[in-house]
Amino acid sequence: MILFSNSSIMACPDKYDLKKIHIIFNKIGDDYDQLNSLFQKFSLNQEGSINPVTPELYEMCFQYTMTAKLAPIWNLVGNEYFVNNRDFLIAKGPQEGVRYHISIRDNETILKLKPVKIHFIKSDNDFMPGEWIRILPSLNKAVVEECLDDLPKSGLFKSYKDIRRHWKNIVSTLQ
């Protein structure tokens, strides 16, 4: 909600504590006033003082904000690809995408884009414990520990939406 409150605000979850977020905004003008009203409206607390932005924090906030604002039309796959299809998981055939790279130097942000075709190979097989797979959206290599058809009742996640939100935040903080 903070990201969409003002076009000049950028934010991202903290790498180490998902209950914290970093926000980049203009201290002068409407950004600060709008943030204060959002904090009051949602009973949020500012922790610590307002600090200058580091290049690392700027890059993390820029990537997270860009990903959030492009979704769901463009979806992040891996650390460097966007696929242009909201239904990319069920679509057949090659899909349009871009490979991107962001770099921050001095006071300059460089965004490199290269058009690509992305091919997803879907498996109808059941996955076996101990099997190596690549997982979406990060494309990290993982070992299957167990396969479930339904979410466990004792788990932290109550719905697919909860899992999706968790993965989206995790992937964005790992970039």
Rank of each mutant, 00 (worst) to 15 (best):
K112M: 12
L35V: 05
M60A: 03
I110F: 14
V83S: 06
L70G: 10
I110C: 14
R86M: 14
Y81R: 07
L44W: 06
M60E: 08
L76D: 11
I50D: 05
P55S: 00
N107D: 08
V116H: 02
P55F: 00
S103N: 05
S49A: 15
W132I: 15
P137R: 07
I50S: 15
L35E: 01
K69G: 13
L57H: 10
P129Y: 11
W74E: 01
I104F: 09
I50Q: 00
W74A: 03
G29K: 01
D106G: 10
G93M: 01
Q40A: 15
K117D: 04
L38Y: 08
I102N: 09
T67E: 11
R105P: 00
K27Q: 10
L89H: 14
N140C: 14
D126M: 13
I118P: 01
N84F: 07
N125E: 06
P129N: 00
D87L: 02
K92R: 15
G130N: 02
K122G: 02
E56I: 00
T109A: 10
D87V: 06
P72I: 00
R105W: 10
S103P: 01
Q40H: 07
L136S: 15
Q46A: 03
N36S: 10
V98L: 02
I104G: 10
L38G: 04
Q46G: 05
G93I: 02
I90S: 07
Q95A: 06
S103D: 01
M128V: 15
N125Q: 13
G29N: 02
P94G: 13
V98Q: 01
N36D: 03
P129V: 05
N84P: 05
L111N: 03
G29S: 11
A91E: 13
A68N: 07
I121V: 08
S138G: 07
L89S: 10
V53I: 03
E56L: 14
S37K: 13
E108T: 14
I50R: 11
F42H: 08
S103A: 02
I133A: 12
L35T: 01
A68K: 04
N140P: 09
I135S: 15
P52E: 14
I135Q: 15
S49H: 02
I118T: 08
Y58A: 11
Y64E: 00
P72M: 11
P94N: 11
P55M: 01
K114E: 06
L113E: 07
L38Q: 12
S103T: 12
W74T: 03
T54G: 04
N107S: 11
N84D: 14
N79R: 05
G97K: 00
V116I: 13
